[in-house]
């Protein structure tokens, strides 16, 4: 188990521990199965081409889920994710698969964040962050914000 993050551990400007993700065609199909979103934009070449995006693109909701993963990893079990929002600004294209288990070479996505504000309100230790998904070129394709409540060392003692 990772060690718990406390309110006192973060300052405005602190980094959320980055999380690397590799989108693959396999991951997109798993996401479709898990969510029931079977829009062919995310798996069918011909359909994606007809929609003007070239080839199948990563689901926006999957990238939002990555950001959720980023935050829940960072805040640990005692942290509470209160709010998460993001915008789907840029399109991302999954890596194809080389064989059954290995993706082809290609870009890696990074989920990142920085603390923008911290304050105590109604006894809750609140931290606000800017968060985003960055593609292999360093472009923020999915910027957003998140609010979390962290445990406090002081409140504990």
């Amino acid at each position: 188990m990772k060690k718990q993050l406390y309110y006192e551990d973060v300052e405005v400007g602190s980094e959320v521990i980055p999380l690397a993700k590799i989108a693959t065609t396999e991951m997109l199909v798993k996401w479709a199965g898990a969510t029931g979103d079977f829009n062919p934009l995310h798996y069918e070449d011909a359909f994606a081409a007809s929609q003007g995006v070239g080839s199948p693109i990563v689901h926006g909701a999957l990238k939002r889920a990555w950001l959720g993963h980023l935050m829940t990893d960072w805040t640990g079990e005692q942290g509470i994710l209160k709010r998460l929002s993001c915008q789907y600004r840029g399109m991302d294209y999954p890596r194809k698969m080389k064989d059954m288990v290995t993706p082809e070479e290609g870009e890696t996505w990074w989920c990142k964040g920085t603390v923008t504000k911290k304050y105590v309100e109604d006894g809750q230790h609140i931290v606000e962050c800017d968060i985003w998904v960055e593609n292999g070129k360093g472009e923020k394709t999915t910027p957003g914000t998140a609010t979390v409540i962290l445990p406090s060392r002081e409140a504990k003692s």
Partner: peptide, 19 residues
């Protein structure tokens, strides 16, 4: 793709045309 989700068989041969 629905079958992949329902059966858990995510072999790329069934949805990745390049593969």
């Amino acid at each position: 793709v629905q079958w992949a989700g329902a059966s858990g068989d995510y072999y790329e041969l069934h949805y990745d045309k390049d593969f």
